[in-house]
Computed example of a mutant assay.
Amino acid sequence: MHRIMKIEGMTCGHCAQRVESLLNKMENVSAKVYLEENAADVDAGAGVSDEALRAVVENAGFQVTSIG
């Protein structure tokens, strides 16, 4: 399932790379993070919940403002 995550708190390329790396470490997830848009383009398997995606990003210190 394709999702767009809006993420607050990323201030540099390193932040975006960290979020992208953490999301891609999840099973059945492929993500690309765009710093300029404060967003992640995420393809996740049916078993991956929005709550799980949110938890990974927020545990890294960033805020997810929407998933759609």
Rank of each mutant, 00 (worst) to 15 (best):
N38A: 11
V19D: 06
T11A: 12
T11V: 13
S21V: 05
Y34A: 12
G45K: 05
V33W: 01
N24F: 13
G45I: 10
G9A: 11
D50N: 14
Q17S: 15
M26T: 00
S30V: 14
E8P: 00
G61V: 05
N28L: 08
R3P: 02
V19I: 11
K32Q: 14
S21H: 13
Y34I: 15
R3G: 04
L22E: 13
E27W: 03
V48S: 04
V29T: 07
N38H: 04
A39K: 14
Q17F: 12
G9D: 03
T11I: 11
L35M: 12
Q63C: 05
S21R: 10
G61D: 06
A55Q: 08
D43Y: 10
A16T: 06
F62T: 00
A39V: 08
A55C: 01
K32W: 04
H14K: 12
H14V: 14
I7L: 09
G45E: 10
T65R: 06
N59G: 06
R54C: 00
S49C: 01
V64P: 00
A40M: 03
L23E: 10
A52E: 03
V29G: 05
M10R: 08
G47W: 02
T11D: 10
R3S: 07
R18E: 10
V57H: 04
A31W: 00
G9L: 03
H14C: 09
N38I: 01
C12A: 14
A60W: 02
A39H: 01
Q17M: 15
V42I: 15
T65H: 04
A16C: 06
N24I: 07
A40Y: 01
V64G: 01
V48K: 01
N28A: 15
K32A: 13
A55E: 08
S30I: 09
S49D: 04
N24D: 10
D43P: 00
D43N: 15
T65A: 07
E8F: 08
R3A: 07
